[in-house]
Amino acid sequence: MIAGLGGLAASAISFSMTLYEAAHPPKVPVVQAGQQIDTGRWFVTLRSARVGTVPPTGVPPSQPVQLVMVDMDVVNRSATPNNVLYRVVAISAPAQKLEMPTAYLDRDKYLAGYFNPNMPERLTMAWEWPADVPVPDKVTVTVTGQIYKLRDNLYGASGWYDRDPVARVDLPVEKVP
């Protein structure tokens, strides 16, 4: 009986918290381009954005696409290599879900693999922009925070977990061929 009431109370609290959060979205600080953002797991410094048809490899794809490319510097601050930057850095198109971006390592002008801990790298993330949507003059990049849990609630395993956005950066979109 008491357990049932407790469960009911818990779900009521959780539901009202969700409602409250939806009604009061957290204020995300607006950060200037070139300023380092601490996401917990990464240091991210957004540089510039451009729209083009050729990815950083220099090889145009067989079917022409519109790519929105964002240049940035990153440092992996955790103790293990990682490559899931798309969960940390995101842009959005009006009324459409963008495909997962591709990351290119500037050093190699090639697909980026893992980012090793404490090794700063410059990279370009490229999103395929829908053909029927005009690319705006500026994009808003949302940077999401991650926290480290020594023990998660399910297995007691250690890991990084996504949190709320920590910064929003407006970048003017250069037009390059």
Binding site: T80, L105, G113, N116
Partner: peptide, 9 residues
Amino acid sequence: GVRYVLTDR
């Protein structure tokens, strides 16, 4: 204690 994996470059 920091881990680095085999390079994939």
